[in-house]
Amino acid sequence: MKKEITLKINGEEFTKEVEPRTLLVHFIREDIGMTGTHIGCDTSSCGACTILIDGKSAKSCTILAVQAAGKEITTVEGIATTEGVHPIQEGFKENHGLHCGFCTPGMMLRAIELLEKNPDPTEEEIRWGISGNLCRCTGYNNIVKSIIYAGAKLRGDELPSTEPVFVE
């Protein structure tokens, strides 16, 4: 009882037959073969599977693949352009916003939407804005710094220093 769906992922159109119960995250990882979107829990708590659906961030473990039919999906594999990395990718690398990298794709996609809605967020707004995404490695300091950096880059403002600051 498979159902045929057509959807766009990172600009490319896919038509596939799926079981109606297939979660979108499994469809992306197993059927399409893009493994940058990760799975970190079974209760929609961790946000490692966050993608963009028609530009809005969503946890792809809470959505069935059939519900995504006709939609445009962006995963981590689709955010860099031919000109280079997305500012959020640059922000994470320059500011040591990742350690193991497992939460990073979801975290970056969540941040992209956050910055679209609020181009110059305060630290507090960033912390609440990413509170649906768990990171166990970084302690979030540098994720916040990465998002502030990406915001500045997207706005065309002067980039903040990426040097670590220490209590002296």
Binding site: T35, G36, I39, E77, V85, K93, G101, F102, P105
Partner: peptide, 19 residues
């Protein structure tokens, strides 16, 4: 404070985890 060499694959979703 060299930027990490491993980051490029992670920020592109090209990490290779067991799953």
């Amino acid at each position: 404070s060299m930027k990490r060499k491993e980051d490029d694959r992670f920020i592109h979703g090209k990490g290779n985890y067991t799953d």
